[in-house]
C-alpha cells in the first residue's frame, strides 16, 4: 500500500515537472534578455523594422531630424520660346514662404477621415546657417551668371535667383535648374548639403524665316517708313475725300 502511494507520488511529481517544463519551453524561441536589461536587436531588423516592433510590442518614438519649419513654394519662371540672336531673357527661381502652407496631414479611407496631429520638429534656423544654392545648366546657351549662386535663407524671407540667357542659334535647348540647401552648424562648423529640386527646362529659340531679331526689327522699321512714303501721295486724296464728306453733311 505504501509502495503504491510512493509510486503514485513519484508519477505525480514527474508529471508536474513535465508540465512545468512544457510551459517554460513555450518562450524558448524568444531571445533571452541580456545582462543590461535591453532586448537584443533581431538580425532581420536591418531589412525591416516591422519584426522588431512586433517583438517589443511597444511604440517606437523616433525624434525627427531638425528641419526648416516652413512650407515653402519654389517658383520657376522661364521663357518657353524666345527669339534667337542678340536678345536675351530672364529665368527666375524663387524659394518663397507659402502663406497657406500650414498643412495638417489628412487621410480619407472609406468615408472615415483621419487627421494627423502636430509634430514638433526642431528648428534648423536656431542651430544652423542656411544658404540656398542655385545653378542653371543650359547646354549651348549663354547663361549669366554661370555656375553656382548663393543666397542666405532667413526665416520668413524668400530667396530669388535670376539668370540672363541668350541663345545664339535657333533650336531647342534643354537644361536643368538646380536648387540645393547648405546647412552650416553654428556650434561645430560642420557643413551639409541637400538637393531640394532639379527641374528640367526646355527653351525653343526661333527666328523669322531665317532672319535674326535685329534684322527683323530693322526691316520692320525701314519697311514702315518706305510703305508710308509709297502710300503718302494718296494720303492727300484720302484727306480730301474725308473733308468733302464732312462738308456735305
Amino acid at each position: 500500500m505504501i509502495r503504491n502511494c510512493r509510486k503514485s507520488l513519484i508519477v505525480l511529481s514527474a508529471l508536474t515537472l513535465l508540465v512545468a517544463a512544457l510551459a517554460c519551453s513555450g518562450n524558448s524561441s524568444a531571445p533571452a534578455p541580456s545582462d543590461t536589461g535591453l532586448l537584443p536587436v533581431p538580425t532581420n531588423s536591418i531589412v525591416s523594422t516591422e519584426p522588431a516592433l512586433a517583438l517589443t510590442s511597444m511604440p517606437t518614438w523616433i525624434s525627427p531630424a531638425p528641419a526648416i519649419p516652413e512650407t515653402r513654394r519654389l517658383t520657376l519662371e522661364f521663357p518657353s520660346r524666345m527669339r534667337a540672336g542678340v536678345e536675351g531673357d530672364i529665368v527666375r527661381l524663387t524659394l518663397e514662404v507659402d502663406d497657406m502652407g500650414n498643412i495638417t496631414p489628412t487621410a480619407q479611407f472609406e468615408g472615415t477621415t483621419v487627421t494627423g496631429g502636430t509634430i514638433q520638429i526642431p528648428d534648423l534656423y536656431e542651430t544652423h546657417d542656411v544658404t540656398a544654392e542655385a545653378r542653371l545648366d543650359l547646354a549651348g546657351m549663354s547663361v549669366q551668371p554661370s555656375g553656382v549662386t548663393y543666397e542666405p535663407l532667413k526665416r520668413g524671407q524668400s530667396a530669388t535667383f535670376y539668370w540672363s540667357i541668350r541663345p545664339d542659334q535657333p533650336g531647342i535647348y534643354r537644361g536643368t535648374a538646380w536648387l540645393h540647401l547648405n546647412f552650416k552648424d553654428r556650434s561645430t562648423g560642420g557643413e551639409s548639403r541637400i538637393a531640394v529640386s532639379a527641374q528640367t527646362v526646355e527653351i525653343e529659340a526661333v527666328d523669322f524665316f531665317g532672319l535674326s531679331v535685329n534684322i527683323a526689327r530693322t526691316s520692320g522699321v525701314i519697311g514702315s517708313v518706305v510703305g508710308g512714303v509709297v502710300g503718302f501721295p494718296f494720303l492727300e486724296d484720302i484727306l480730301k475725300f474725308i473733308l468733302k464728306r464732312r462738308r456735305k453733311k
Binding site: 525627427p64 531630424a65 531638425p66 528641419a67 526648416i68 519649419p69 516652413e70 512650407t71 515653402r72 513654394r73 519654389l74 517658383t75 520657376l76 519662371e77 522661364f78 521663357p79 518657353s80 520660346r81 524666345m82 527669339r83 531673357d89 524659394l95 507659402d98 502652407g101 498643412i103 520638429i121 534648423l124 540647401l181 541637400i194 531640394v196 529640386s197 527641374q199 523669322f208 532672319l211 531679331v213 527683323a216 526689327r217 526691316s219 520692320g220 522699321v221 519697311g223 514702315s224
Partner: peptide
C-alpha cells in the same frame, strides 16, 4: 516683322510646394 520682333516671349511658370520634410 515689328510685331514678331517686339512681342514679349511666352513664359512658363512652374510652382512646386516644398514641405519641411524636404528641407531637413
Amino acid at each position: 516683322l515689328l510685331v514678331w520682333g517686339y512681342a514679349p516671349n511666352p513664359h512658363e511658370i512652374r510652382i512646386q510646394p516644398i514641405v519641411p520634410a524636404e528641407m531637413r
